[in-house]
Design a protein around this nucleic acid. Sequence first.
DNA 1: CCACTATATGATTATCCACTCATACATCCT
DNA 2: AGGATGTATGAGTGGATAATCATATAGTGG
Lengths: 110, 110
Amino acid sequence: MEPSYLCADILKALAQPIRLKIVELLADGEHCVCEIFPAIAQEQSNTSRHLQMMLKSGILSQRKEGLKIYYSLRHPEVLEIVHLAETMVDHETMRRSALVKAKRSLPLSR
Amino acid sequence: MEPSYLCADILKALAQPIRLKIVELLADGEHCVCEIFPAIAQEQSNTSRHLQMMLKSGILSQRKEGLKIYYSLRHPEVLEIVHLAETMVDHETMRRSALVKAKRSLPLSR
DNA sequence: CCACTATATGATTATCCACTCATACATCCT
DNA sequence: AGGATGTATGAGTGGATAATCATATAGTGG
């Protein structure tokens, strides 16, 4: 019940490529499982497990309509987090390519 | 090399209670391993592994000074991400306690 | 009731993670 | 050089995670 564990659980729910794709898919609103799993090219069962995992960690919510179950993002913060992480990836990518370039002219520097 | 993998790696580097503690410790500036591992009550070797992991994922940087190696946060976005996750934990905690309260007066609702 | 569709879950497997202990490596001091 | 300190890493272990296949559950329509 310690806060750092809960916080880590939320981040863990986002720290997986397939789950990130699901989050990006849900960025424009709710979708049901039968829409999600073809869109991310995964098996239905695997998709369902990832959705359950995110639901339990509190970042998704569920809405049932007939046979279908629609999932959606519960907190706008999730998208902000993903966006910040993408910003960091961009910075890192630029930094690394700059390092490679620098190494070509100034070998053995760190 | 796909972007969603890199993004997931960054989030994975934050999605662990001990690493979150390290990040919070580094929020006020650089610290060396010998300061960090007693502060988070972990073995030196385990602490070092977590630091290496975060270094490789790109969220930390290293500075050597004599025997000591000082680690620091490379991107301010990391703190923003942790802060957003904490905000979500607060919202979830409030929601859940509200649900419990509601259940006591209106049992069997969802 | 039966067939059909949508979703969840048990069981299994392979892989990854966190941790520990011991040890190596690097740097400093005398 | 030798001892002390700070950090990293190899090897081993137990436990978590992700994926798959098969099956169960639940709602829908004939």
